[in-house]
Design a protein around this nucleic acid. Structure first.
Lengths: 122, 122
DNA sequence: GCTTGAGCTGGAGTGCACTCCAGCTTGTAG
DNA sequence: CTACAAGCTGGAGTGCACTCCAGCTCAAGC
């Protein structure tokens, strides 16, 4: 897989892929004879996971730290587990906030509808 | 209420409050004889609501648009309702993603624990 | 063998959302 | 009456996470 294929399949741009490599989010892949990046299939799963951490609010610096640990292999398992456990808690907090806000949206929408109906009544 | 009190009670900084005023998120408050901003209590509720929109991923530009509509009064009720309904849908999507990712964290943490236990076994 | 598209590097530029600063005025406490 | 904390304005600076660019090489089709 060349970088363009990864871009297409992951939804990231080639610039972003190279940028992620530069900052250590993605391990530098092998190169072919022409010096081009050749990725294994597994990078797609990793990118998807990164996106999930991203979308649930994990900071770049933490994702980079996690990526570095992952590259170091099994010796870092417990630290990675701790990071995920911490992140799990922040997700739970965000979930609660989302649910609160969703309920608030419902109340506000209902209130607005009522006010609109009354305004029409006149 | 002077700006410092609002800062303390809202958790925003005075700089952020003036910045929010500049970009139209907060209506310019009255001034006292010395030219200082005097806020009503209601600004606190409004800021809390803004923070909630913020924390659930609404973009600055949209919050500004909503704030502008709010300032225009009842004539904009239906447009505001539409915005909130749209935002409600994006919150729902984010909720689903959060729940997925939470489940993923659980699975990963469990897998890591198992691997750590096995490593210890040897 | 030449065109055209994809990839390469190093570095500059962008957009967002603040955050800080200089130099000034105002208000309160001793 | 004098510190000194808090507020004011306009504008510059920051940090994050990309995004784009110039100038080059490489690969595939006609």
């Amino acid at each position: 897989m060349l970088i363009g294929d990864v871009a297409k399949q992951s939804g990231l741009t080639v610039d972003t892929l190279r940028f992620y490599e530069k900052i250590g989010l993605i391990a530098p892949p092998m190169r072919n004879d022409g010096g081009r990046r050749v990725y294994g299939e597994d990078v797609l799963g990793w990118i998807k996971f990164l996106e999930q951490l991203n979308a649930t609010g994990m900071k770049q610096a933490d994702r980079i730290h996690y990526a570095a640990l992952r590259q170091q292999g099994d010796a870092t398992l417990s630290e990675r587990r701790e990071m995920l456990e911490l992140h799990r808690e922040t997700i739970k907090e965000q979930l609660a906030l989302m649910q609160d806000t969703l309920a608030l949206m419902d109340r506000k929408v209902a209130a607005y509808q009522e006010m609109e109906a009354k305004a029409k009544g006149h």
